[in-house]
Design a protein around this nucleic acid. Structure first.
Lengths: 255, 255
DNA sequence: ATCCAATGGTATTTTTGGAGACCTTTGATG
DNA sequence: CATCAAAGGTCTCCAAAAATACCATTGGAT
């Protein structure tokens, strides 16, 4: 207990970059989240939560899905079983059978307790990812099919019944992400939406917010179609700030 | 071959959300990249490439590292062996031994061929993540230690010898990411830097760019310390555009 | 010179996951 | 009403990864 051994100077002795030398530990984190079973479960659940597969819709056949997820069919089946037991999926055998997403979401979390750090993590992530995506989408020069897709997603969200709103809202934002041409960014949007939807499930859905939200969607899509990045970004930011304030107030936390 | 079976109407028959029904296949992708060995290899290599562990610095002891990465020690050791064989690491036994990052980076890719879609993916991702992080960092109200850390990172990058530049540049941007308080965002910055550094390794390093880059860093950090999000974001964007143009011209691609 | 604690090295067992073959159910079609 | 193709269900075998215990090396401290 004599030697403190804190400042492990790089003992190779050569080209020493003396300052900084921050402990790398803070940047080291798990390469894989949980085991394959868990990761697959989360992955599929995320797709459902985000509306990538809507209630009533069928998932691809097991073999194909296993292949897409790069997971063995055994593993996938075990996960599908779990999701079924949790009430997310319904499975029907025979030709024209398959795995279907169930209509009613089984869960409504009522934990209004959220770790403030985690809340900050999620909200910061989302702001960056989604407002950035909106801007880039407006910078891209869009072809006719993309423009159509965007308009359709907007119309779907506008026309949505309250119980479908969250899914179709998420889909709209995912479509916007796709316009950037960055697969990575799309994944971020999906992840961000899944996280935020989880939080939103814990607070009431207000009709007035919904209306306001729809209005902002109109503006956002217009800015993207007009190729106006500045407006797109600022509208997106305003849109996100709305939810952020809402979440922070209901989950009673400050900055 | 009579039934086309394309529009798989949601056969549950209830609450049918008729329109959209986009095939979820485009959003389904592997839950895990490769096997554990590969993922661990990539993860550690990323930390090295990005300067999270600088040449000469020691990695945490195997047991601790395995624990942090959530990987068994056997797997980790196999990966460390590979990295050693590839010339990234040096291992010394005994007390005060450990695993050290080797001084000279072993590789310089000379493939100037990059898939344009991939280039677009990476650059879009990076622009969003890093300019967004810069903005949020400027919005945050920073405490003294954070301000000091930021200044130190800036000074380190400014003073860096050309061969250390890439690492210290990356570290600066990672520190900026950390100011946002979003772990997820930090991870994105790390990933983005690792990807871009790979690309930069394929093109020459110009002294004039380096100088210009340093000047932009000064402005960026000043904006963040001043709490000026707009400036921070636009300086960051300009900074990134510089590299983007450079990369596109050397890797001779449009879009 | 000896000790000893921190670190890497090795070997063994158990658990998890992947590959592939084969069985069962179902309903549209002829 | 028989057929058959497309889907889920089961089983078996093997490889990958995790867990655990124990061995070997090293250099500073006494």
């Amino acid at each position: 207990m004599t030697c403190e051994a804190e400042d492990q100077v790089d003992s190779l002795g050569e080209r020493s970059v003396a300052e900084g030398l921050v402990d790398p530990r803070s940047l080291i984190h798990p390469v894989r989240a949980g085991n394959t079973l868990e990761a697959t479960f989360e992955g599929l659940l995320r797709l459902i939560k985000v509306g990538a597969v809507l209630p009533g819709q069928r998932l691809p056949p097991e073999r194909e899905l296993a292949d897409s997820l790069q997971v063995s069919r055994s593993t996938l089946r075990s996960v599908l079983g779990d999701l079924q037991r949790h009430g997310y999926l319904e499975v029907r055998r025979g030709r024209y059978g398959g795995t279907f997403v169930i209509d009613s979401a089984p869960e409504k979390q009522t934990d209004v307790t959220v770790d403030p750090r985690q809340l900050q993590d999620i909200l910061a992530y989302r702001t960056v990812v989604e407002s950035g995506a909106a801007r880039l989408a407006a910078e891209a020069d869009l072809q006719a099919p993309q423009r159509r897709g965007l308009r359709r997603a907007l119309d779907a969200a506008s026309a949505a019944a309250p119980e479908d709103y969250r899914h179709l809202d998420s889909r709209l934002h995912i479509v916007i992400g796709e316009l950037t041409g960055s697969r990575r960014l799309v994944d971020c949007v999906v992840e961000s939406r899944a996280l935020v939807n989880d939080l939103l499930d814990r607070i009431p859905l207000l009709a007035s917010n919904l209306e306001h939200s729809n209005h902002q969607h109109q503006e956002l899509v217009a800015a993207i179609l007009d190729g106006d990045p500045e407006t797109a970004e600022s509208v997106a930011r305003a849109h996100l700030d709305g939810t952020e304030t809402l979440l922070r107030s209901f989950l009673n936390l400050s900055a």
